[in-house]
Simulated scan of single mutants.
Amino acid sequence: MTSHKPTILLIYTGGTIGMVKDFKTGALKAFDFNELLSRIPELHLLDCQIETYSFDIPIDSSNMNISNWQKMAKIIEENYSKFDGFVVLHGSDTMSYSASALSFMLENLSKPVIFTGSQLPIGDLRTDAKENLITAIQVASLQNNNKPVIQEVCLYFEYKLYRGNRTTKISAEHFNAFTSPNFPELAESGVHLKVNND
């Protein structure tokens, strides 16, 4: 029996992670997500198929609101049967709120919905975007006997996977921007990806 490659839908809602700096002007602009694979060739090493969906107008996460949450939930709902997992790229300021809202809107999930983003734009030399994005996709495509290992809304940032509705943003300066004060992380990424099965 051949196992199929997990299919992941990458949903870009806005946020620093999808920005590139224009090196002449220093201005940030959103980049075309269809160019993602050429920007991050490491994505080819992941054992999954990735499709992308972008909000027409990227949302600054400080303007995130209920209608945006409904839109995200609808995109996931409409594509739920076609994909094995979902990765939502989001501005970090309100990511905890969105992850929390979606965890209540999307009930009885049997697939992962992983929120991630970055503190620095994807084109920056010292960006955290690549690691966050690559590992979030990896986590979303983790399978055991062709079933997703993670079956809930989570937030992945700086080597840690948290339950989505248990996170809070603690820093705008540091890469480890989030914490989950009253619930242990679900997984930690180091040399190996360690899932906390408890």
Rank of each mutant, 00 (worst) to 15 (best):
M64Q: 04
F183R: 01
I75K: 13
F178N: 00
N146G: 07
S61K: 04
E152S: 12
V87N: 08
R126D: 08
D22F: 11
S110F: 05
P181N: 07
A172C: 09
H4Q: 14
L161Q: 02
L102C: 09
D22P: 15
K21C: 13
N63A: 14
K5C: 08
A101M: 14
Y156Q: 02
K147R: 05
V191S: 12
A140D: 00
N196A: 07
F86A: 06
I17L: 15
I170H: 00
P112E: 07
I50A: 04
I134V: 11
F115M: 06
A73Y: 10
G18Y: 09
I150W: 00
Y156M: 08
G85N: 02
I40A: 06
K82V: 04
A172Q: 10
N145M: 03
H192E: 14
P58W: 04
S3I: 10
Y156N: 04
E51C: 03
S103D: 11
R163T: 11
D60L: 13
C154M: 06
M72V: 15
K74I: 06
P58E: 05
S96F: 12
F157C: 05
L161R: 05
N144T: 06
T167K: 03
M105R: 12
N65A: 15
K29P: 09
S100A: 09
V88N: 09
A99F: 03
G26M: 14
K21E: 15
F178L: 07
A27L: 15
F83N: 08
S110I: 11
N182Q: 10
F178K: 01
H44S: 08
A136F: 02
T13W: 15
E78Y: 13
S141Y: 01
M72D: 07
K74F: 13
L9D: 06
A101L: 10
M64R: 01
I137S: 00
D93V: 05
K169R: 15
P6V: 01
I170M: 03
F55G: 09
A136D: 07
Q70R: 13
N176Y: 03
G14A: 13
I114N: 05
V113K: 03
S141K: 00
V149Q: 07
S3P: 08
F183A: 12
R126V: 00
C48Q: 02
D198Y: 13
E107A: 13
K71Y: 13
I137W: 00
E42Y: 00
K24G: 11
M95T: 03
T25L: 14
R39H: 10
N165R: 09
D22S: 13
E78P: 09
E51N: 12
K194M: 02
A187L: 05
F104E: 12
A129T: 02
S38F: 11
I11N: 11
D124F: 08
T179W: 01
L46D: 02
A129V: 00
S38M: 07
N146Y: 01
L9M: 11
L142Y: 01
S62K: 12
T135G: 02
T52Y: 05
N176E: 07
L28E: 12
P58K: 02
H4K: 14
